[in-house]
């Protein structure tokens, strides 16, 4: 996957990469023109989900729980 990440960074278009799998999650992080975020597992209390808002200028992350 590191090779794929390098390819993402080499392409100049703005991108957001959303993933799961890692139950602890990772907050939105920005590297050059690419943003990465990993959702915390909804399975685990307090059952979180996220909302990202994308504008021309930036991306914000808010996390909510049930």
């Amino acid at each position: 996957m590191a090779e794929l990440k390098a390819a993402l960074l080499a392409d100049s278009r703005r991108k957001l990469v959303l993933s799961g799998h890692y139950h602890e999650g990772e907050d939105l992080m920005v590297e050059d023109h690419i943003s990465f975020a990993t959702a915390r597992a909804f399975r685990e209390p307090p059952h979180p989900f996220r909302v990202y808002e994308i504008t021309d200028a930036d991306i914000t992350q808010a996390e909510y729980t049930l």
């Binding site: 996957m1 590191a2 794929l4 990440k5 390819a7 993402l8 080499a10 392409d11 278009r13 703005r14 991108k15 957001l16 990469v17 959303l18 993933s19 799961g20 799998h21 890692y22 990772e26 990465f36 990993t38």
Partner: peptide, 22 residues
């Protein structure tokens, strides 16, 4: 994956996948 990175579509991209990139 490599196709969408090499085409000339100017739109910003949102990639959805299960695994983390690293």
């Amino acid at each position: 994956f490599y196709s969408v990175l090499s085409d000339d579509d100017p739109r910003p991209q949102i990639h959805l996948q299960h695994y983390l990139m690293v």
